[in-house]
């Protein structure tokens, strides 16, 4: 009985790990350098910036203020008005599909590669 439970535990752990590793492996294989940093506030795209031009952009919304920095093809958030600052601690993103999230300000910075921009615009 106990042995059977342990076997079930292991099956559960292996299934979860396999599913996530496959998902990550697929992402790592198909990932492409992004071309745009898309700013989404409350789920709506409000702006997109090319990753090829260095810039510092202040993003204001009714929820707060964040500063987006684009440098050497990578986007990061360098300041935020929210108390937790998780978005500023996030590493810079550069591949299509990667996101930086600021939950309190309902802000998402998403990287779009030129190829998947159309698909995401529809979805």
């Amino acid at each position: 009985m106990e042995k059977k439970k342990i076997r079930n535990d292991i099956i559960l752990a292996v299934c979860v790990l396999a599913a996530s590793l496959i998902a990550l492996a697929v992402f790592l294989c198909v990932r492409a350098r992004g071309s745009y940093a898309v700013v989404l506030i409350d789920g709506k795209e409000t702006a997109r910036y090319s990753l090829s031009e260095n810039a510092e952009i202040e993003i204001k919304s009714e929820n707060g203020v964040n500063t987006l920095k684009i440098e050497n093809g990578k986007a990061s958030v360098i300041s935020a008005s929210c108390p937790d600052g998780i978005c500023t601690a996030h590493r810079a993103v550069r591949y299509g599909g990667e996101v930086i999230v600021c939950l309190p300000n309902k802000l998402v910075i998403r990287i779009d590669s030129a190829s998947n921009g159309g698909v995401d615009a529809v979805s």
């Binding site: 992402f27 989404l40 409350d42 599909g97 996101v99 999230v101 939950l103 309902k106 998402v108 998403r110």
Partner: peptide
């Protein structure tokens, strides 16, 4: 909350 599905990678 964010109305985004792009968090699957996380």
């Amino acid at each position: 909350v964010l109305k985004t599905i792009g968090l699957g990678l996380y």
